[in-house]
């Protein structure tokens, strides 16, 4: 029967990046161990992980739930990108019923709905799952700051503190660092805590939004050059 499975195109001695490996063998089960190794490394590629989940989907008996869990933790760290749900689409429901996956799904739910307080509480209870990947906390903080910057021009200190789960002296230090490196400024709020002025972008300062109305990209105009000439 004509199963067209081409032999892996990479000889062992040549080292390909995982992206190249996937591009050359998108449907080749032989690269499964390479992809698993990659998940265990510090690097991240959504494409490679989707490819691995795809291979698990095709041959469920080869699935390692530990690897899947690690993929999902890394996908959370990729927020605000939708990687987590893209991965879930490929993971069979009975696998998602396992305790560790239920926890991760709850964590994702809190992040998706901006409930950072609950997120940090839940994450503290599940250290063994999320701490498997170094840099988890920082990645979530970066996501929190991303959403806050879309939303706020000026944010009260306690609201920020809650979202990034940093308080007191550590927060002072963190703010100091942001002021020096990321263009944050601090203001005195009226009779209350500090106000943090977040850097401007077109989403918290809509006037910065470039009006696309009257601009025509050059490549569109080049199309009529022959006529104009």
């Amino acid at each position: 029967m004509g199963r067209e499975r081409e032999s892996p195109k990479q000889p062992q001695q040549v080292s390909y990046t995982v992206e190249q490996l996937v591009a050359l063998n998108p449907y080749n089960p032989d690269i499964l161990p390479d992809l698993e190794n990659y998940v265990s490394s510090q690097r991240y590629s959504l494409e490679a992980n989707l490819c691995l989940l795809r291979l698990y989907q095709f041959e469920p008996e080869r699935m390692s739930t530990q690897i899947v869990a690690r993929i999902l933790v890394k996908a959370l760290m990729a927020m605000p990108a939708p990687d987590f749900s893209l991965c879930l689409f490929l993971i069979p429901e009975r696998v998602q019923m396992e305790e560790q996956f239920k926890t991760l799904i709850v964590l994702s739910h809190y992040l998706e709905t901006g409930r950072f307080r609950q997120f940090w509480d839940e994450a503290a209870k599940s250290r063994h799952i999320v701490e498997a990947v170094p840099g988890f906390e920082q990645a979530i903080q970066a996501y929190a700051i991303h959403v806050l910057s879309l939303t706020y021009q000026k944010i009260p200190r306690p609201v920020l503190a809650e979202a990034i789960n940093i308080e007191g002296l550590s927060l002072d230090k963190f703010l100091e660092h942001q002021v020096a490196n990321s263009g944050w400024t601090l203001e005195k709020g009226h009779a209350r805590d500090q106000l943090i002025v977040l850097p401007q972008n077109e989403f918290n300062h809509p006037e910065l939004k470039k009006s696309a109305a009257d601009s025509v990209p050059l490549e569109h105009i080049t199309r009529i050059f022959p006529i104009l000439g």
């Binding site: 605000p80 998706e112 709905t113 901006g114 879309l150 939303t151 989403f203």
Partner: peptide, 13 residues
């Protein structure tokens, strides 16, 4: 949190 959700869900990255 609702307002953050609104921003997150309406802004694709």
């Amino acid at each position: 949190t609702i307002l953050l959700t609104y921003k997150h869900k309406t802004h694709a990255v």
